[in-house]
Design a protein around this nucleic acid. Structure first.
Lengths: 124, 124
DNA sequence: GTAGGTGCAAATTGTTTGCAAGTCG
DNA sequence: CGACTTGCAAACAATTTGCACCTAC
């Protein structure tokens, strides 16, 4: 990530303009609106570099392809609506998960994903 | 799943003998100890058939290929070792995750995944 | 000018499918 | 026997990498 190219500008713009996590293909399509020619390999390489540099963080949900969003959000988890498939961020965290850890195991981090109906789908 | 072949017996034996979720490659390697020749395509076909029949359930961890375990075990979660990449079952559950659920949302189920070092890798 | 970056295509990895040969019932 | 299964290899899909050309600095 030493040079500032128009491809990278376009990719960063896409993430700055979109309020939800994006997958590589979505970035490719949105990026091509900013600049005509953009290769999928460049998107993958740039995303990986932006993750390494800490500008992006991966958002991985069970059974789904990874998506990426801008870094800087506080520790949080996700709620996935089974009806509309949208994913929401939830601020809380169960916290004391050490008690679940088997003896001799060392706990480093955790993921929590809730499933159900979002407010809009539950009301409908 | 109409016939009872030795390949299928071997694959079922692997799941019955192993107390943690297994991926297709792990099943292939363990199955070859029960019977010499076993093809990866057969493993995939048999796993998919066993899932359809309800004998196996998929265990999907964020950002990873699916693993499978026998259906019918009690509610539990998973611990993934960052060193050896094996996944273990952990009996506990944080319990009242309703407090994390945003207002108006209806919580139906949840996944919890812990990450760290398993006992063997932590000791090494 | 030159090292880093891009884009294409080939290579990798993981999973599914077509088909001839093998096997269960 | 005859249909279901297997195993190989080819087909796919997603992602990474090799390499010649290009471009920011």
């Amino acid at each position: 990530m030493e040079r500032n190219t128009k491809q990278r500008d376009a990719i960063r713009q896409v993430f700055e303009a979109t309020p939800r996590p994006l997958g590589p293909t979505e970035v490719l399509e949105a990026g091509r609106e900013h600049m005509g020619s953009l290769g999928i390999a460049t998107v993958y390489r740039t995303i990986n570099a932006l993750v390494d540099s800490g500008w992006l963080v991966p958002v991985e949900l069970p059974g789904e392809a990874p998506r990426y969003e801008r870094a800087g959000i506080a520790h949080h988890h996700h709620f996935r609506c089974r009806s509309c498939t949208r994913v929401f961020e939830i601020p809380g965290c169960p916290g004391d998960l050490r008690e679940l850890t088997p003896a001799g195991f060392r706990l480093e981090s955790h993921d929590v994903t809730l499933y159900g109906q979002c407010a809009r789908c539950a009301a409908a």
